[in-house]
Amino acid sequence: MNMMPQTVVTPAHPRIIAERPVKIVARDVNVYYGEKHAIKHLSIDIPDRAVSAFIGPSGCGKSTFLRSINRMNDTIPSCRVTGDITLDGRNVYDRDLDVVQLRANVGMVFQKPNPFPKSIFENVAYGPRIHGLAHNKTDLEEIVVNSLKKASLFEEVKDRLNAPGTGLSGGQQQRLCIARAIAVNPEVILMDEPCSALDPIATARIEELIDELRQNYCIVIVTHSMQQAARVSQLTAFFHLGNLVEFGDTDEVFSTPQEKRTQDYITGRFG
């Protein structure tokens, strides 16, 4: 899925974001949980090879929209999504789309580290094995090692790859989950509060890793921490009551927001 690079201009407001290839495009997206209208007429262009942070009060729709990108909301019977979300021009809600393949292309890292009850090696090998990405044992080992290296974990676990993944520290478990996502060659990595269960040192390691990974991936992160958004992202989207209020260059959103609601949230007047 390749598309020509274009300037990212969000329909949310007229600010032009630095020129980057667009990876994900959403147009007039609405998400409902039964009668509840959780996301309202959202339109946004998310660029490749950058970190886009979603901020806003609890319950404002950040995670709901994040989970719509790789159709995780499909697992909720009462959830209904309208509008268009495209990845490299392909509608992710196309009936002919293979959802399993979509979730390989759009990996997800959750709030709480969730390694499989398997060895460190098998945690990372699981995806490549079921997707047929390795032709033999040597290929599989190479994928596992490279994924652990990309997740900045290999040096810490190289002598115990057969040990349970659940025996690692919280921060190591989260990096293992990132390695597991990377192992199936995703194009996008979604992160839903990936540091909220971690201590400050482990959080710093994850943030460093996010900064490294953005060189090769489109990363979208939901965070309650405005300081984290400011540290790790190039672009920030502010959500409020199911609406995308503002989306633009992180430095500009935090220093000169165009919307009063953004200003009030950043300065602590509400939220």
Rank of each mutant, 00 (worst) to 15 (best):
P77C: 01
N123M: 06
P186G: 11
R231G: 02
P117Y: 04
D28W: 10
M226G: 13
A134T: 11
P11T: 06
K158Y: 15
M4D: 14
A12Q: 06
V81I: 14
V99E: 04
Q215S: 14
M191I: 13
E208K: 00
Q215Y: 12
T236F: 02
M108E: 10
F116S: 05
E208Q: 05
C60L: 09
S255F: 13
D45K: 12
V222T: 04
K118W: 07
S169N: 06
Q174M: 08
Y93T: 00
G61V: 05
T10C: 15
H37D: 09
C60S: 15
K158S: 15
G61C: 07
H37E: 11
Y217D: 11
I143Q: 00
I130W: 01
L87R: 06
V222N: 04
G171Y: 08
L42K: 00
C218P: 03
N30L: 00
Y93M: 03
I24L: 14
G167R: 11
G127P: 06
P194S: 07
L241F: 03
Y32M: 09
V144I: 03
D264W: 13
P11E: 07
A230H: 09
S58G: 04
D159E: 15
D94H: 04
S63D: 05
V9I: 12
V22R: 02
S169T: 14
M4H: 12
N136P: 09
K112P: 11
D74G: 05
I24P: 12
D192R: 01
T64Q: 00
E187Y: 07
